[in-house]
Write a protein that binds this DNA or RNA. Structure first.
Lengths: 162, 162
DNA sequence: CCAATTTGTGCAACAATATAACATTTCATC
DNA sequence: GATGAAATGTTATATTGTTGCACAAATTGG
């Protein structure tokens, strides 16, 4: 199992995450021969700054404030689509929100553990879950294209009332 | 594994499904000492008639047409909340749509196989998926309250180009 | 049965999320 | 620099979901 659940639930150096993510993104974009434009980079950074699932309109507000210029929905949604396409971010359907992918590039099926109280979302890549889903689809004759596994509940910290 | 994947992908007697679901709903409401009002019943029926995930506003349109009177969003959303609470229907987060639960009452974790082309959504209750998710959450110290496992792709029929 | 209370519905406005359509600019390449 | 493709700007609109309050209907407890 690959997971960021430790780090997701604790205070840590966000800036470090952000920089690491940005570096990975740049590398990936070079490899894929696509352009990480200023807008796209700004969106990715803002998502990593939040470090929890961020709604598109919150993103717009924060980018507008940070950039000094009002950013409009289509601009941001286009950047989001770009980043989603590269696997640099994920969309959490149950929250209508976006979060940075801690291990882009590595092919993985994701389980998100979304805390109802603090809003954190840890990402786990679990072979057992994945293979169980694949087996299920196979038995039904269903051809998988993508999947969303989103678990809602209480993270370790909120559960202990902290 | 419990699943309705056979029936979900084939033509069959929808009216039969609808009636069975309605009967189950009545029984459940009696047991839970809650009221299956005409509106709630109408919403449940309409969802079963569609037999695939149905968006709230499509539901509103169809109910308005069928009932002769314009139904407004809050009315329908309240009925949906009621039905969701009883487990009589599910919400598919990736589609913003609702579908009838073929086995309400039986505690189950659901896997939905959602076809990108025809819009069908088969529901499977798979122990292996469920236990893998539970184990994952446990390792992370996460307390599960609900979960959404939604697989998107091609159903057997659409895959074969039919 | 009646009053009190809870529960459900009608209605108007609005909030949040996402996309369409088309003009304009920027960029890579020739 | 001219050209075509990719990205962005801009306006408008579509889709999904909620709030708040007034009214009605059902349930409960005398």
């Amino acid at each position: 199992m690959i997971t960021n659940s430790r780090v997701a639930y604790q205070q840590h150096d966000h800036l470090r995450c952000q920089n690491a993510a940005l570096q990975q993104a740049r590398t990936l974009c070079v490899r894929e021969k696509v352009r990480l434009t200023p807008i796209r980079e700004a969106v990715l950074c803002m998502i990593w700054q939040s470090h929890r699932p961020l709604g598109a309109y919150k993103l717009i507000d924060q980018l507008s404030e940070a950039g000094g210029k009002r950013m409009l929905p289509p601009t941001v949604y286009r950047a989001l689509d770009f980043l989603l396409g590269l696997g640099l971010i994920h969309r959490i359907a149950t929250l209508n929100a976006f979060i940075g992918c801690p291990f882009p590039g590595s092919p993985h099926s994701d389980v998100f553990l979304v805390c109802r109280l603090c809003g954190s979302a840890a990402e786990c890549s679990v072979d057992t879950v994945n293979s169980a889903i694949v087996a299920t689809a196979q038995r039904a004759g269903f051809q998988i294209e993508s999947q969303a596994v989103e678990v809602t509940g209480l993270c370790p910290l909120c559960r202990d009332g902290s």
